[in-house]
């Protein structure tokens, strides 16, 4: 699929923003009134969480053909995951802002706790619906699997915690808590790395039960596209194809694994092993930036890897030198079963 940068930024930034909020609420609820979590931290983390989420929303409107009626996307919450994504994201933004407002106006711990929990529910709802937008497209096998919701949630929370760690360093959070966040983030990042590897493995062998024979209804193994029915590229060849998909596969996978996971994991491990290192705030900032940047590459590659079955109709489409991965997989002998 064509990697739409606005959607890449929406899913990564909003995901991280909500991860920041989740940890903020957790810390403030656990250590409320102890002074271990200073108000500078709450305000800074809350503001950055809002910035990430609103930034995601703003960039996502660039994807819409008619952004001025974007609000309409909330109407079909009963049927459409996209609708649910928009609703839960709006709720999350609203509750994050409300939480900050309540905190600022000196609300009691219980009020903050209840608001925070509602916010976390909205956050989890967002992770689920945002990922299901992709996972529910059954005609794109690389998206339509359990890794999509699991990874969107895990990566969002991990990157949010990573950003939190950096913020916490600069806002005088208690060192024991810092160490705790560091260890937790590191553990999550390790799991995330394993999940990413597993999902790459799954995608390498994923297949759909449709092939060009049943797509056009001719029972012959030799079917060649002679003319795609248009003089040049059009919506169907632009939206579902990425020209260099095959070329960049290996390089990008390596880049994603290094930047999004290995670099932060190394930095957080160093910090965890040698606790004083954790006091070098720059280290955690680099780790957080690397993870967010890496996840942007990861999400972009997630789009590129998606291969819609409608591409079968353009299976031998050569004008841009594209080969349909479904086709090459079939040639390598991976089963592409009829029926």
């Amino acid at each position: 699929m064509h990697p739409e940068i606005s959607l890449v930024l929406l899913t990564v930034l909003a995901g991280a923003g909500q991860g920041i909020f989740i940890l903020l609420v957790a810390l403030n609820s656990l250590f409320y009134g102890t002074g271990a979590v200073p108000s500078e931290y709450i305000v800074a983390a809350g503001a950055i969480s809002l910035l990430f989420q609103v930034g995601g929303i703003i960039t996502s409107t660039a994807h819409l053909g008619n952004p001025h009626r974007g609000w309409r996307a909330m109407l079909m919450i009963k049927n459409s995951w996209l609708s649910r994504e928009v609703v839960t994201l709006s709720l999350s933004v609203g509750i994050t802002a409300l939480y900050l407002l309540l905190y600022y106006s000196g609300a009691t711990g219980t009020v903050l706790f209840v608001t925070g929990m509602v916010g976390i529910a909205a956050n989890l709802g967002f992770y689920l619906s945002c990922s299901m937008v992709y996972a529910s497209v059954t005609f794109i096998r690389e998206w339509s699997n359990a890794f999509t919701p699991l990874n969107f949630t895990l990566f969002g929370i991990t990157s949010g915690f990573g950003v939190n760690l950096a913020i916490a360093h600069y806002t005088h959070v208690n060192t024991d808590i810092l160490f705790g966040i560091n260890s937790l983030t590191l553990a999550l990042a390790l799991v995330a790395l394993i999940m990413k590897l597993l999902s790459y493995r799954f995608n390498a062998t994923a297949y759909v039960s449709v092939n060009v024979k049943n797509a056009i209804g001719v029972n012959d193994p030799n079917i060649k596209l002679m003319d795609m029915g248009a003089s040049y590229d059009h919506y169907n060849t632009k939206e579902y194809f990425y020209e260099n998909a095959e070329k960049i596969t290996r390089k990008t996978m390596f880049l994603v694994l290094t930047v999004a996971f290995l670099v932060p994991i190394i930095l957080w491990t160093v910090a965890a092993l040698k606790r004083e290192m954790a006091y070098i705030p720059e280290l955690t900032v680099i780790a957080a930036i690397a993870m967010i940047a890496g996840l942007i590459i990861e999400r972009r590659f997630f789009f590129i890897q998606g291969n819609n079955v409608q591409n079968l109709y353009y299976a031998n489409f050569r004008s841009t030198g594209v080969r349909n991965p479904l086709e090459s997989r079939a040639r390598k002998g991976t089963p592409v079963p009829m029926n």
Binding site: H63, P67, Q310
Partner: peptide
């Protein structure tokens, strides 16, 4: 229609 293109992703026939 807000032009989100989601419907086109869901159509297997292009």
């Amino acid at each position: 229609c807000i032009g989100c293109k989601y419907c086109s992703w869901a159509c297997p026939y292009g």
